[in-house]
């Protein structure tokens, strides 16, 4: 599973993408992905909040994740 990273999420991980391989437990939902990130990169827990986008739409925590989805981490936005 590939996860795109932007803004401070990219700085936290040190890359613009994370690959979660089947060696680890692949997150099945948005909530599981958030838990995975906070466990692996505790700095995610220090953010004001962060959202997950599935196929370039904001996704609620109960949305399931499929292998072919385009998944992205959306830290607090600050455009304008």
């Amino acid at each position: 599973m590939d996860v795109l990273l932007f803004g401070i999420a990219k700085d936290i991980v040190g890359n613009s993408e994370i690959q979660i391989t089947s060696k680890e437990k692949i997150p099945n939902s948005v909530q599981e992905l958030k838990d995975y990130l906070i466990r692996k990169f505790p700095d995610f827990g220090k953010l004001s909040s962060f959202a997950v986008a599935v196929n370039s739409e904001y996704a609620q925590d109960d949305v399931p994740l499929n292998r072919n989805d385009e998944i992205a981490i959306i830290p607090p936005v600050s455009g304008g």
């Binding site: 932007f6 803004g7 401070i8 986008a53 904001y58 992205a72 959306i74 830290p75 936005v77 600050s78 455009g79 304008g80």
Partner: peptide, 13 residues
């Protein structure tokens, strides 16, 4: 502008 600032995935450093 108010809604853009809330929802559009753009980040400012």
């Amino acid at each position: 502008i108010d809604t853009l600032k809330e929802t559009v995935p753009i980040w400012k450093k």
